[in-house]
């Protein structure tokens, strides 16, 4: 994973609450055996009209939001299935951060492991961002702050290990493999007890 330290972009807003992983990437695109190339199907059935053309009512299709890499979404983003294809699709589509008052557990874990910043905000700040689409934000992972255009900033929480991995591009499997001896010891203890 490449280090993620700072993200600067205007925001795109999806007001809907409970945007589930089926909406992010419909199941019929999960027959792939690769991680790449899912961006073209991100929000597929919301983003395209039945004839395959862009749906003008899908907020991210507006010319002003197309290049945005920070997504502000309604409460409980990423609920539903455990498919890691959801963060893969969002990243491939160009989203680098999701800001929300509450993010579903499995999605949040999957997102952070892939360098997609999944940040939970307090309700008032989240509501303010939902009501002010298109503003310029600068997210600083080290300082755990979001810089606002008026000079103010929002402080956010980030699980310390996830933050460490993001800042240093740490591979979590490498970290786990370092526990090889402890795992072997645990297995021996279990075998003795059984």
């Amino acid at each position: 994973m490449k280090p993620v330290t700072r993200i600067h972009s205007r925001t795109a807003v999806l007001l809907d609450e409970n945007i589930d992983t089926d909406r992010i990437i419909p199941a019929r695109f999960l027959t792939t055996t690769e991680r790449s190339g899912l961006g073209k199907h991100c929000f597929n059935d919301w983003r395209y009209l039945p004839d395959g053309s862009d749906n003008p009512d899908f907020p991210l299709n507006r010319p002003t939001t197309r290049s945005c890499s920070i997504l502000v979404a309604g409460r409980n983003f990423g609920c539903g299935s455990s498919r890691e294809h959801a963060p893969w699709a969002l990243l491939d589509y160009g989203i680098q951060a999701v800001l929300c008052s509450e993010i579903a557990d499995i999605f949040r874990g999957n997102a952070l492991k892939n360098g997609l910043l999944a940040i939970e905000l307090n309700e008032p700040e989240h509501q303010w961002l939902l009501k002010n689409p298109g503003i310029e934000l600068s997210i600083d992972v080290r300082a755990q702050t979001i810089q606002l255009p008026d000079g103010g900033h929002i402080q956010f929480e980030l699980e310390p290990f996830a933050r460490h991995c993001l800042l240093n591009g740490v591979d979590q499997l490498g970290f786990l493999l370092q526990h090889g001896d402890a795992i072997t010891h645990y297995e021996h203890q279990q075998e003795k007890a059984a």
């Binding site: 890691e84 557990d105 874990g109 699980e159 979590q172 786990l176």
Partner: peptide
């Protein structure tokens, strides 16, 4: 509990997961 594909790889390689206590 359900896990993502990166974690599927973690379990395959180490039989373990990194978890915060819910």
């Amino acid at each position: 509990f359900g896990i993502g594909t990166t974690e599927v790889g973690h379990v395959m390689a180490t039989q373990c997961l990194l978890q915060r206590k819910p």
